[in-house]
Design a protein around this nucleic acid. Structure first.
Length: 486
RNA sequence: GCUCCGUUCGUCUAGUGGCCUAGGACACCAGCCUCUCACGUUGGGAACACGGGUUCGAGUCCCGUACGGAGCGCCA
């Protein structure tokens, strides 16, 4: 292990180490992104480790969801994902080695004794620092057969320093740090031990993670030092908060990335939004993946927490949608369809020949969409059943006068020699002029009749995509309806 | 409570002692474009938490206060 590490001593190796207790949430996604960017920037490796040592709270579904989320986001990792649980024997061996070298000791403190210490500290309103009497006791005093945990024999004097790319130099007085347990009485390694051993064995050079791990960095430093291992470079990134400044909750954005996918966000947009949350490169806002990787640096990560802002994500997503090739947008539509009401019916319509129509309208659709779902709702009139349901504004647009205008328009339309947006626009403009009407007086009722709404892509595009027969049929529906009402 | 961290427009941020009468982006408002919406474009309002220092000069350095956050498990 150490040989291969020496050989690659100058190569950057980072990792993303989620615990599979849920989905890949937005904060984790950003941490993964930062690590991925850092590795790519330095031509290093981005490894993945699943922290699944807590058997109760871990599920294969969650692991799959995390891998899916990373893949969708485009954050490919190098090699196989490492299971932390599978490495427990090695963690145990390291704990034993520390015991043997005198850097750790067996602690026979019981849960009851611990609880009493906690209670006493609470009562006296003083900070709780566990001081195990077993630290100094002779091994001969050990009660035979009683369960024990292994605790790190941490230094009591001086301070432990964490030199961090983001947080700067943070010092922790050793007197405030207690002897952390590295091996539980049931023989299982604890988180801090497992992380250090794994990071060391995996040759991790830089640990980029949330600030909630800052104090862990101090404790982990003590383990590295006890083992005589090289401490990795640290970069503790501030957390992402909800719009109200409090911890991100389900209401806000603490959703799994798959939720963003289902809401119709593009991975490139989410990456761009996330990278800009806490990190900056001057006034730049839009980054291609190449630019991100070329410019990303832990030194440019801010120290204060950022709030999650859907409006900005949406604006960014709109930008990416406008610039996305139509065929990929079509694929994105197919991707979200299963997740919306009536989606399967739409998918069937698409497969039954509607796909070509959606594709034809895509340039107009993507111009006004913020999410993939907007594309779908904006195209809904394509597969709507006749006669169309009209919304209130459409209803108002189709008053008696407008209906009459549309009635006289039907015959020139029926005789249209060419059914293209361009030709239709010329035809309708000529018609409006002939009848001394402003174009809007014709176009708006037309839009209402054809789409059932006052808002849509340009009407001439709508007519072209709908086709002559369908257009005339929808206009006829309006005539029927207005006749019935009068 | 203790330890650590933070605080520039509503939000994300630029800013590393003079280039800042504080810049960009999103959002908001108004105009233009226009068959609607959107895009685009032009313009507008909008911030250095507060109080002391240091300095010729402070958003930038120091101290304090307030507010916010994170961590204080035989969880990860």
């Amino acid at each position: 292990m150490s040989k291969s590490q020496d050989a690659s001593a100058h190569q950057v190796v980072v990792r993303f180490a989620p615990s599979p207790t849920g989905f890949l949430h937005i904060g984790g996604a950003r941490t993964a992104l930062f690590n991925w960017l850092y590795a790519r920037r330095h031509g290093g490796r981005f490894l993945l480790r699943i922290e699944d040592t807590d058997r109760e709270r871990n599920s294969p579904e969650a692991v799959a969801a995390i891998l899916d989320g990373l893949t969708w986001l485009g954050l490919e990792w190098d090699g196989e994902a490492v299971s932390q649980f599978a490495r427990a024997p090695r963690h145990r061996a390291v704990a034993e080695a520390m015991l043997a070298s005198g850097h750790a000791y067996r602690c026979y403190l019981t849960q009851d004794e611990l609880a009493a210490m906690r209670e006493a500290a609470e009562r006296d309103k003083r900070p709780l620092t566990i001081r195990s009497p077993w630290r100094e006791r002779d091994a001969a005093d050990a009660p035979a057969g009683k369960p024990f945990a292994i605790r790190l024999k941490a230094p009591r004097e001086g301070e432990t320093v964490v030199v961090d790319h983001v947080q700067g130099r943070v010092t922790f007085p050793n007197k405030d740090l207690d002897d952390l347990i590295i091996l539980r009485s049931d023989g299982n390694p604890t988180y801090n031990l497992a992380v250090v051993v794994d990071d060391h064995d995996m040759g991790i050079t830089h640990v980029i993670r949330g600030v909630d791990h800052l104090t862990n960095a101090a404790r982990q430093t003590q383990i590295y030092e006890a083992m005589g291992w090289t401490v990795p470079q640290w970069a503790h990134v501030p957390l992402i908060h909800g719009p109200d400044g409090a911890k991100l909750s389900k209401r806000h954005g603490a959703l799994g990335v798959e939720a963003y996918r289902e809401m119709g966000y593009l991975p490139a947009a989410l990456r761009n939004y996330l990278v800009r949350l806490g990190w900056s490169h001057g006034d730049d806002e839009i980054f291609s993946t190449d630019q991100m990787t070329a410019w990303f640096d832990t030194a440019d990560i801010g120290k204060s927490a950022a709030r999650f802002d859907f409006a900005k994500l949406e604006a960014l997503n709109g930008h990416y949608i406008r610039n996305e090739p139509d065929d990929r947008l079509l694929a994105a539509v197919a991707d979200v369809l299963p997740h919306i009401a009536g989606g399967t019916a739409i998918a069937a319509w698409l497969d039954g020949g509607g796909g070509a129509k959606l594709a034809a309208l895509m340039p107009a659709l993507k111009e006004r969409a913020k999410t993939v779902r907007d594309i779908i709702s904006g195209a809904a009139f394509l597969w709507a059943d006749r006669p169309l349901a009209l919304d209130d504004k459409a209803m108002k647009l189709l008053d008696a006068e407008a209906s009459a205008v549309l009635g006289t328009l039907t015959s020139p339309l029926g005789a249209a020699p060419e059914w293209t947006a361009h030709a239709l626009e010329a035809l309708v403009r000529a018609f409006a002029e002939e009848h001394a009407l402003k174009l809007g007086k014709v176009a708006q009722p037309l839009r209402a009749a054809l789409t059932g709404s006052s808002v849509s892509p340009p009407v001439f595009d709508v007519m072209a995509v709908l086709g002559k027969a369908e257009t005339l049929a929808r206009l006829n529906d309006v005539q029927q309806n207005s006749a019935a009402n009068s």
